[in-house]
Nucleic acid binder design. Sequence first.
DNA 1: AACAAAACTAAACAAACGTTTAATTTAAAC
DNA 2: GTTTAAATTAAACGTTTGTTTAGTTTTGTT
Lengths: 220, 220
Amino acid sequence: MFNFAPAFQTYYVMSEFNDKQHEILLVAERLFSEHGFDGTSVRDIAKAANINVAMISYYFGSKEKLLEALIIARIAGLRLQIENLHKEALSPFEKIDKLIELYITRINKNKGMYQIIHFEISSKKREINCESFNEVKRYNLEALRDIIEEGQEKGVFKPNINITLIPPTVMGTFFHFQMNRTFYTELLELDTEEKYDHYIKNDLTKHIQKTIKALLTYEE
Amino acid sequence: MFNFAPAFQTYYVMSEFNDKQHEILLVAERLFSEHGFDGTSVRDIAKAANINVAMISYYFGSKEKLLEALIIARIAGLRLQIENLHKEALSPFEKIDKLIELYITRINKNKGMYQIIHFEISSKKREINCESFNEVKRYNLEALRDIIEEGQEKGVFKPNINITLIPPTVMGTFFHFQMNRTFYTELLELDTEEKYDHYIKNDLTKHIQKTIKALLTYEE
DNA sequence: AACAAAACTAAACAAACGTTTAATTTAAAC
DNA sequence: GTTTAAATTAAACGTTTGTTTAGTTTTGTT
């Protein structure tokens, strides 16, 4: 007689989704990152996920709440795995190299999600809750600060370094390269997916590592 | 009897718009950058520009052609004014400083347009003609290459520098800072527009200048 | 087998979308 | 002052939008 839509799941406190919900989230992530939130209709998602349009409202409440659920579900994966890095007996230079490598691989894996978040937080249309995203950024920044201050105490890194602006340089360089992919693909003749990925893993990562190490040791 | 809509103006060869067309382009630029192309309706534009909805189709043919016209009209302004920089009797270091300052002020003035272009070129929905945009990027890259190679010949810059990846670092750092404006506003307590602009003009610009100069002189 | 809850569907809904139409007003030319 | 083209308008067009409804099928429990 009555239809009980599980809209209560929009609290996500349990954050346990069934297979169908996971599939919807996966499809939505791809389409939102490729065409934007406003450029993707619920029917696009339903068609790509092979489900009925009504299932989106049924499982997530609304299209906007689907976006919310997606962001919350994915942000947890953005925190860097730096726990073991701190304990390892490495030089400050090696730690910087490893941290940047962690940054790049992590961003590279979640580039679709970053695309979505970056558009949404700089958009004045919807106000998404970016507090958990900010928390991740603060956490990653503190990890970087620890490593740099350790290097400064050992005398290998120079003082007077604006540590706050280093993540923007690391991530910004990657994103700008990614954003202008077609341009750099043509310029550097990275005509296959493999060549492109190889360039990111090697040349781009090395460029960023070299840049930050140069900055940390630069005599003004 | 017949209505002759000036749809021929969509060729833009003359690229001469009247006051009303300029106003529409200005409003569309703001709204597209704030809410995205798909997040902005022609009625939003019409209301903000105080004109009738039909005027957009009348003057530009369609909403997509309006975007096209906007991009073509604005891209010309993105080329750096480096003509006189090359002639000036400055050291390679001073030239790098000046070029980066030019980069930042230019991006800062056109950040709305960059927001639009970056979303559109990385979107798989519409295929915009980015050739003129790529041309600007190639031109600016060559200007940078000239300065760096001059410095290398003089022996003040090290060899083996990936020049191609320097613009992504310069622009990427700025854009990432801009993209996460609310986060850095809170972190650095830039609670007024003046403080924020001052931080970009001074701290952020100096950070990028220092970073690139460090990279150019870094002994691996 | 019988029942109830959950999962799923096709259809309908109103609102918003980009665009066009047909008519009117404004502006310029003669 | 008349004529003619351009500028501007309100209304309507057909789609597409996100969401809801009302019903059916599936699933799990007793």
